[in-house]
Design a protein around this nucleic acid. Structure first.
Ligand SMILES: [Mn+2]
Ligand SMILES: [Mn+2]
Ligand SMILES: [Mn+2]
Ligand SMILES: [Mn+2]
Lengths: 217, 217
DNA sequence: TAACAAATTTAGATATATCTAAATTTTATT
DNA sequence: AATAAAATTTAGATATATCTAAATTTGTTA
């Protein structure tokens, strides 16, 4: 059986490998997990012994098929729990991550599958991230960052790149959430700021904000 | 912060101290937890350092006020989760214990309190055990064991003493559960077996069964 | 009460996880 | 290509948890 730490490593490797190509480097995981590189090396060896990653000294790791499956099972649980917390327990989308970080380690297939049924088979979590189904398949749709949306083209917010409380609460204050219609009215070349239409209100956001909002055109 | 193991020890000490008087002995906890007495001694020292138990060498432990509170907080979570699993996730009462054993360690006051609200402030878990409320107060009612119920006196099943899957499934097969009306029709002195009325059916049970069913007269 | 048995504690071994600092390998730069 | 810088690994230290076996204390019985 996996230790809690093992599971967090697999998840971290999965996420890093999604956002970059090639093998996953020791330091990138060290940063993500908050551990020293030497500890990461130890874990890489351990995971390699269990055939969850392919590891070559000095060359980083990549997940094996079994490793991907294990990571997706944790991510599935994480996102299902986040959905539950928001939809039934009055959590705000910026409060769920820390708790889901614990709940994702609960070992019970029946629990996971029944939770999924209870939530009526959600496909996306409160941050717009796709939830792997029982077969670990995820429905992903074409999404682009808000700053890539052509001026005056209509889009809908379908997710966020940055999941930090700070950013999510900023969006709350601007009344931007999953499902909010978004449109770029004007792009100010001088400072890269954007004039946007968000739902019924128009407002001004910086490029940094726009780079963390996913929209479906 | 508590380690998972610490929490299980506190819970074990609480339960043992409920079912016996005086200090809690090293071996009794060793049996409950499935550890060696020497390990238990180590933990007793650790808990004592944290002022969660009063410990005197060779004399066992007793929980301090803080220790009782900590134990009750875990028990509160355990029983709330058991209730959730049965009421919303299609778990049977004999399947919930192992999962609740994990869920009880999730650290989030908001989660616990919102779960309680979501379940509409239940006072008892699926086994009839009382759930401590937010102030850690438990509603207990007068209950006796079925074998102490006078012949022909009417009672209602309000709990079970043995929580094992084996026993709970036995009760399922006999259609005895929380709320089932029970009555002792005849007590066979020769082998201490009992003829009982359970709901609409009459059946015969051994003394061992009767000693594990709580009834409210 | 002396002697034995049972319970408990202590001492020391083993296993695991993570760190620091040194050594090694890879990558980038001149 | 040689050298410097960065990344990674190794070696060894520290901390924690749990065990076995021996020593100690307590409880029981002749
Ligand atoms: Mn986690
Ligand atoms: Mn999420
Ligand atoms: Mn537990
Ligand atoms: Mn219970």
């Amino acid at each position: 059986m996996q230790t809690l730490s093992t599971e967090d490593y697999l998840k971290a490797i999965y996420h890093v490998s999604q956002s970059s190509s090639g093998a996953v480097a020791t330091t990138s995981i060290a940063k993500q997990i908050g551990a020293k590189p030497s500890s990461v090396t130890d874990m890489f060896k351990k995971l390699s012994d269990q055939n969850l990653v392919k590891y070559q000294k000095y060359q980083g790791v990549s997940l094996t098929n079994e490793g991907v499956k294990t990571a997706l099972r944790i991510i599935r649980k994480h996102r299902l729990w986040e959905s539950f917390l928001v939809s039934h327990l009055n959590f705000n989308w910026d409060e769920v991550h820390q708790v889901a970080e614990q709940l994702e380690h609960i070992q019970s297939e029946k629990l996971t599958n029944e939770l999924e049924r209870f939530l009526d088979y959600p496909t996306h979590d409160p941050h717009g991230d796709p939830i792997p189904n029982r077969a670990l398949f995820m429905k992903t749709y074409n999404k682009i960052l808000l700053n890539e949306l052509p001026v005056n083209k209509e889009g809908v917010c379908v997710g966020v790149k940055d999941n930090s409380s700070n950013f999510l609460r900023y969006l709350d204050r601007r009344q931007i959430g999953i499902g909010t219609p978004l449109q770029v009215l004007h792009r100010e070349d001088f400072d890269d700021s954007l004039h946007i239409q968000a739902g019924k209100s128009t407002l001004m956001i910086t490029i940094k904000i726009a780079e963390n909002i996913y929209v479906k055109p």
